[in-house]
Design a protein around this nucleic acid. Structure first.
Length: 113
DNA sequence: CGGGTGACCACAT
DNA sequence: AATGTGGCCACCC
């Protein structure tokens, strides 16, 4: 699949992992960053999400911060959109926070490897 | 070339 | 135990 390497694969990788998030699951920026190799680059992952607007099919709503808080919901088209999307997948969201976060949490480093 | 931003995380007090 | 500040990496001007 990923045969060819790109220069800016950081964003590409982030999108790739984000697209691999199973239905009804959520992940964190740090988990993706960790999977990419740099746990400290979590901010860059969030930035990739910001740029994901140009990319279609990026379930950025499935990506939340490490505490399960919908930090990026404000960046969505609608403030309620992110919550609606998560609830649409069966994920319970309260006060912009994902309930059962540890249960719906999907770690690419462990699940995807 | 340098500085500033950003949907974060970890450590420190 | 909770809150505050800094640091890290990549992209844009």
């Amino acid at each position: 699949m990923n045969d060819n390497l790109k220069k800016s694969d950081f964003f590409d990788k982030v999108y790739n992992v984000t697209l691999k998030i199973p239905y009804g699951r959520v992940t964190t920026y740090g988990a993706i960053a960790n999977y990419l190799g740099s746990k400290k680059s979590a901010r860059v992952v969030g930035w990739a999400m910001n740029a994901s607007h140009v990319r279609e099919g990026i379930p950025a709503h499935r990506v939340v911060n490490r505490v399960g808080l919908l930090t990026g919901k404000k960046h969505f088209f609608g403030i309620n959109l992110m919550k609606q999307l998560l609830e649409s997948e069966g994920i319970k969201v309260e006060s912009n926070q994902v309930l059962n976060f540890k249960i719906v949490f999907w770690d690419p480093c462990k699940e995807l490897q």
